[in-house]
Design a protein around this nucleic acid. Structure first.
Length: 257
DNA sequence: AAAACGGTCAACCGCATAACC
DNA sequence: GGGTTATGCGGTTGACCGTTT
């Protein structure tokens, strides 16, 4: 089987995401949903491969992604599930609302694994010690979180009253979304989190015909006030909630980041 | 003060598999 | 049924940052 490369290596950016890229991705996904990750960067004006966009969204930008210190309950859950499931991080993360598989995996490797390494035979987890270390770690992390929370991005949450996505649209389009919404995990971990995500994206299934031809310029948009050209020549929408006079991240208030 | 070291975590890569044609 | 495409997952990497020497 010939597999097409996930990235067209010519001209696509790699590495750390810039605030501007985040802004474009958030703006596009909150507006149109993630109907097709491979096509999305083109329409969102991003020089990234779809895979990279998906990862960035799921692990970092998505609403309700919980960041920062793990509670003891969460850590105990990870440990318990890891004993039971092994390295099935997505299944473990599914039991921890707001946590992503990547984050759980990182947390395991950096914080929890050592308890097993250090004390392979005794009670595998010293929660008091871990708690102390978490607190210690929290000091430095707190600073970073404060910074992140200060970003104040007014992400539009599905649950927020002002969130009224008008979705993409052609029949092709909505079929993609339907596919996303109805696809079943083969790895036995269809979770509340999965379902809530699916449910939230179902809200995008509003019929209309012009999405493919006008991917980012929704005529009846009540959110997009104007469009502008970025340096790469892509046109992208400007959102009222992304006030150009403020730092992008300064507008991120009240959202997990 | 600065170089070396170690920990953390965002992001990439390759593979597996579901979905589609 | 077989080829192709899209998505999801887990392993790994490397940049960044704090700590130690």
């Amino acid at each position: 089987m010939v597999r097409t490369p996930c990235c067209d290596t010519s001209g696509l950016r790699k590495g750390t995401w810039t605030p501007e890229e985040d802004r474009k991705l958030i703006a596009y996904v909150t507006r149109y949903g993630c109907w097709n990750w491979r096509q999305l960067p083109k329409y969102a004006g991003l020089q990234r491969c779809g895979k990279s966009c998906r990862l960035r969204w799921l692990n970092y930008l998505r609403p309700n992604v919980k960041r920062g210190n793990y509670s003891m309950e969460e850590e105990e859950t990870i440990i318990r599930l890891h004993e039971k499931l092994g390295n099935r991080w997505s299944a473990i993360a599914a039991q921890l609302p707001g946590r992503t598989d990547n984050e759980v995996k990182n947390h395991w490797h950096t914080n929890l694994k050592k308890h097993f390494k250090d004390k392979p035979s005794e009670a595998k987890y010293d929660s008091k010690k871990e708690s102390a270390e978490v607190n210690k770690r929290g000091k430095s992390k707190e600073k970073e979180e404060t910074k992140l929370n200060d970003h104040n991005l007014p992400l539009i949450l599905e649950s927020s009253p002002s969130y009224s996505p008008q979705e993409p649209a052609s029949s092709d389009q909505s079929s993609s979304i339907n596919k996303y919404n109805t696809v079943k995990s083969t790895k036995d971990s269809v979770t509340d989190d999965d379902n809530s995500n699916k449910a939230s994206f179902q809200a995008y299934e509003v019929d209309s015909g012009s999405f493919w031809s006008e991917p980012f310029f929704w005529e009846n948009s009540n959110m997009i006030t104007s469009t502008t050209l970025d340096s790469s020549g892509y046109e992208f929408a400007e959102f009222p909630f992304l006030n150009g006079e403020m730092d992008f991240y300064d507008q991120l208030d009240g959202f997990y980041f």
